[in-house]
Design a protein around this nucleic acid. Sequence first.
RNA 1: GCCCAGAUGGCGGAAUCGGUAGACGCGCUGGUCUCAAACACCAGUAUCUUCACGGAUAUGCCGGUUCGACCCCGGCUCUGGGUACCA
Length: 1006
Amino acid sequence: MEYDFRKVEQYWQNYWAQHHTFRSEEQVSKPKYYALDMFPYPSGAGLHVGHPLGYIASDIVARYKRLRGFEVLHPMGFDSFGLPAEQYAIQTGQHPKVTTEQNIARYREQLDKIGFSFDWDRQVRTSDPEYYKWTQWIFIQIYQSWYNTKTNKAESIKTLIAEFEKNGNAGVTAVTGEGVIPLFSAAEWKSFSEKQQQELLMQYRLAYLSEAWVNWCPKLGTVLANDEVKDGVSERGGYPVERKRMPQWSMRITAYADRLLKGLDEIDWTESIKESQRNWIGRSEGTSLKFKLSGHAEFIEVFTTRPDTIFGVSFVTLAPEHELVDRICTPENKKTVEEYVHFAKNRSERERQADVKKITGVFTGAYVEHPFTGKQIPVWIGDYVLAGYGTGAVMAVPAHDSRDYSFAKHFALPIPPVIQPLAGIESKLEEEAYEAKEGTLINSDFLNGLAVKEAVKKIIAEIEKRNLGKGKVNFRLRDAAFGRQRYWGEPIPVYYKDGIPYTVEEKELPIVLPEIDKFQPTETGEPPLGRALNWKYKGQYDYELTTMPGWAGSSWYYLRYMDPNNGKEFASKERINYWQNVDLYLGGSEHATGHLLYVRFWTKFLFDLGYVPFEEPAKKLINQGMIQGVSEKIFMLNRKTDNYTGILNGLADNFEYRFDKSITWFFSAENVSNALSRLNELGQNGSLITNDLVQINVDINLVKESTLDINKFTKWRPDFCDAVFVCHGGYWRNGIFSSDERVKGGSNLFLTKGEVEKMSKSKYNVVSPDNRLDEYTNELIPGITETYGADCLRLYEMFLGPLEQSKPWNTNGITGVSNFIRRLWRLYHPVPAAPAPASLADSVFSVSDEPATKAELKVLHRTIKKVMDDVERFSFNTSVSNFMICVNELTELKCNKRAILEPLAILVSPYAPHVAEELWKLLGHKESISYAIFPHFEEKYLIETAFNYPVSFNGKTRFFLELDLSLSKEDIEKEVLAQAETHKHLDGKAPKKVIVVPNKIVNIVV
RNA sequence: GCCCAGAUGGCGGAAUCGGUAGACGCGCUGGUCUCAAACACCAGUAUCUUCACGGAUAUGCCGGUUCGACCCCGGCUCUGGGUACCA
């Protein structure tokens, strides 16, 4: 009987579900292993072939660890709050709960078809009130805490209040907000009103409400994320966006900057992720320094990492948002300054940062005094200075900082050098700044002649002595925004009494998301929750109307998996103590500075309060590479072009049809590439035509072998039913092809251009693993799981290449893997010798109980060793190859022995669990193969007595010589030199040197 | 710009510690089976050169260390990903 994967896979998937085969239990007698996948957002597009890559890898590890005697926690759940569902709700009025439910069902169905060993009894969803009850609870803990820099940990706000009542705030060292907190005594504290006290406490809380810069879109009545803003207008609708300060909830992640940085050294994460986090946290050591404003009582404080260049300061630049801007600019500059500030403020931060080449700024008219020379230094405003970093002001040293340099060049400001590079290095100040921290100080008064390092030390001492500033550590990391003006998220458990925020009582949790009529902001510009009727805390107090951001629920979900149904705690102490932190965390690198930083932050916070016994959420982290898709593009003529003649000549000069601006023109990729190569020959730039062409993504299901099915395409996009499709040999219109007589052998095929890109619904290049009904043509597109089976998909995704590398999806090699599964099956199902002629269809299950031969045992144990090595270093592609080699060799040996085939089934089971289970059952076992014991590796079967030495001359292998491994180096040398082959290659010359590496190589130097 | 990866046959990739470069799979070529095809099985397959034996060249490019380099060092080119003008 041939292997019928459809029947077998269906059977085992049902079996596992019915028997809860992968249910994990807290068994103190067994060592634990926690293998976690980053949980998915259930998008409407469903699962595509890229998603399972990581899930398959972690599933292999989980199944392997089970066989090795570990109690394995391998859960899956859904990050089910989020913007896409809400966006869909705004457009269609469908409740996000409903669409989310449908999407989860679809994901679940797709995941089930791949045969994962998830413990579905532990599934969590962030949008489930029983889950977000605890997200809200954690928020309250963070709100009710402050960061004590003396103990270097978070503490309950009660300890702070007790200190205030006893001694005031003079002795308190805490991480607080930007502003300066006035000193108060215990008596003063007690005399403050409730409101004053709460406002002071807010400065200390780890979750706090403050004014923050946001992208406000008045027309949409909402705040937009950076990537929802393009060119100063909203991506949706194109309405103007302005930067506005609004009360916003934030989390004081900056309090943990140092610990987040240091913790990286303790965890086994990929170096690139750790590096991104280090850069994101951005620790820099420098000095704060005050510049006295001429004619004002105030100072401008700057932060610099290069205090040694102080004598090279030629101007000071303020961020447009800097609070002193208004006050210091002189009347004659007021108008330009105001205009500039308005312009700069309303550019989004991302724009300001991305647009490096455009240098903008204005002079304020004000001057500061140089703290050492007393010279007058002009004060400028420039948008290259960011309000959120340092003090929002820089001392510009154009000779030794490239951004200051560009600014100075642009506005023709002086560029005085103060560092003489080391001998042999030239500084070309007319071209660029000299930024290296090597050289000797010049033009710098008492610093002259010092090396950079010494100068830094000396000047900091001098600055501190004169009380102008002090050495300081700055972090780039900013506090994390923790509120969105949206509906589909966790309500923030806060209510307002007399305008003062308070957290709700724990027994009131969860604060359930109320029902509303529409998912849009209210007419008065309040968030959607403002629409909820009769939604008051204790019937009288207003609730907070913003909801939590996407990262809230995902910052602690790994803890909930340990105890998903606990109604009393987020997870019990016993269970947290058993499972500890994650042993293997697998997911995409796009979460490097978002999720992976927040989850570390929350873990450290929970550690400080004693809720968890570890500081890091995951010991080991691996990033799977992205599986990209091949998207298909066609070229459309831009209707706004004023270059019709150029296009005509370039793309369709063999073509008598005249352009008509009222219809849509498409060009075959063949025409475009021909035109480009013609331009290239003429030495002209290809952008002559590409600028006037718009690339349109077409559904990859409408394309076969780069040829677009124009009929299907116009059915899919009826707006293009009247378009003209220009091919190499003519054109298509309304389903009729008119050929161009002048083109000999011209084609009527309309070709598309393929491009490797991220798989995404908007690019119509998504390949899903299972069957799917084509929504435009109503055809059933068979997926891999239907054509080849889940085991084959699992093996093939692993076989594609190293887990961490990105690669485009193609199914070119899948038959090889499919073949392997059948060959494996055949080892257990030999074709009977009689009655001849028998075919594969006549094969039946049969294994022999004869003892295994040496050769067979060698194959088996070599494979055991390889599989163990490969899993430990997450090299799954080589494992698959090794299984292929093993099966090929056993087939060659005609091995049909239980002693070999039984362990082989276990070895294969983490990778191809369905076929392994079936074989295991056929071998007579009653229990799932998941409960089997991984075969014991025995070195003795691999011991060789001889080695086939490659003999090389000057490093080039010339011949092989089999020699006994017991021979000494000298004997080997003697043997080799005695060979006739050796003499031939020596060609009469005497060997200069003979290198013998036993069990490796012999190299003769001539 | 900066940071992090990576570059090996027609293709995906292997070579785990500096020791036989190209495992395994795809594709391709030839063969067996078949009325035929599919499937399956067998053999071959880096490039150049040679009737052949053999020889030469090969891991993006240039150089270095070494008896020996895909692997280590210096410099460069290209591709992918990330990103923050961070003072």
